[in-house]
């Protein structure tokens, strides 16, 4: 309504910049949404710490066994009979187990490999199955949706831990791949529910209607148009699934129904620790357990960070 005052424009730009809204406005040219997410993620200090811990464990899992080879099929010959194991020392910083007298550090390092592998790959199976089921149910609706969601209901009504335990015992045979598949096949339900609800809302949006009007195939609409927009919450849930699966694997293996002890995992290392309680072998269960705790903590922190970074609207 009146001439522009000098100085007014910069103030407004300044305001936007200070408000942080500029990330969207100015950033559009230079940053894509993943770069923006990484910016927000970096502000989450605990998430960065978590990422550091996780990367460290992954590095240990990959590189560790190369530098510290461990022969599983060879029972180490004890230099003298130390049935109750040995507490942490300079040579064996995590101590040695009772019985077979294994080095706990080597067990933990080798356990990292199997445990993380199981955690990540079963998460991957769970996410793929869950996303596909949820997408199909949410996109097509009707009878397909009904049938799939009833299956989800039944699966969620199962006492899952119990069923996983039984399935691992009956089918797993100590085989890592089978265990991964079992965990994957019992962990997709929440993801599928989430995906379905996201699809239900996204498929009504204009750009999907437009894609349909242009005559794109269902598969293309699902994978190119809807799924990318539903990705953020799915990624957040997936990160938390890793933690859940690592704990569940440890639980099943600890009970002796999981992975064959010749492939150490953080769970099955502990199986025999209980019998050595009277001998006070605290270092035997302590370190593998701490490895689990730190990994799960790290993954949960990352999950929190991802939630803040990818899904800024959702709160605690």
């Amino acid at each position: 309504m009146t001439p522009v005052q000098p100085g007014s424009e910069p103030d407004i730009v300044d305001l936007i910049r200070k408000e942080g809204a500029v990330d969207y406005e100015v950033g559009l040219e230079s940053l894509n949404q993943w770069q923006l997410a990484w910016r927000r993620f970096r502000k989450h200090r605990l998430a960065l710490v978590g990422l550091g811990i996780l990367i460290f464990f992954i590095a240990v899992a990959i590189v560790g066994p190369v530098f510290m080879p461990f022969e599983f099929d060879v029972i180490p010959s004890p230099d003298k009979i130390v049935y109750q194991g040995r507490p942490p020392s300079l040579q064996h910083p995590f101590g040695e187990t009772g019985g077979l007298q294994r080095d706990v550090l080597l067990l933990v390092i080798n356990g990292a490999r199997t445990s993380l592998f199981i955690g990540f790959s079963s998460m991957f199976i769970g996410v793929v199955v869950g996303t596909v089921v949820g997408s199909v149910a949410g996109y097509f609706g009707g009878l397909v949706d009904n049938v799939l969601m009833r299956i989800v209901d039944v699966m969620l009504s199962l006492p899952l831990l119990f069923v996983i335990l039984v399935a691992s015992r009956f089918f797993g045979n100590g085989n890592v791949v089978l265990i991964i598949i079992i965990f994957g096949l019992f962990s997709w339900m929440t993801i599928s529910r989430l995906t379905r609800s996201l699809f239900l809302s996204i498929r009504e949006l204009e750009f999907v209607q437009a894609a349909r009007a242009v005559g794109l195939s269902d598969r293309r609409i699902i994978f190119r148009h809807i799924l990318p927009n539903a990705m953020s919450p799915i990624i957040v849930s997936a990160s938390l699934l890793i933690a859940a699966n690592i704990i569940a694997e440890a639980f099943v293996s600890f009970l002796g129904f999981g992975v064959n002890p010749i492939y150490p995992t953080w769970g099955n290392i502990l199986s025999n620790a209980l019998t050595f309680i009277p001998l006070g072998n605290w270092w035997w269960p302590a370190f593998p357990g701490l490895a689990i705790i730190f990994t799960v903590l790290a993954v949960n922190f990352i999950g929190d960070g991802l939630r803040d970074a990818l899904d800024p609207r959702s709160k605690e």
């Binding site: 933690a243 704990i247 605290w282 269960p285 357990g289 705790i293 799960v296």
Partner: peptide, 16 residues
């Protein structure tokens, strides 16, 4: 920490 702690580990450590 409690959330990340496996039940069996806590149990074993308590017994120790």
């Amino acid at each position: 920490v409690g959330y990340a702690m496996p039940t069996f580990w806590l149990g074993i450590m308590l017994i120790f």
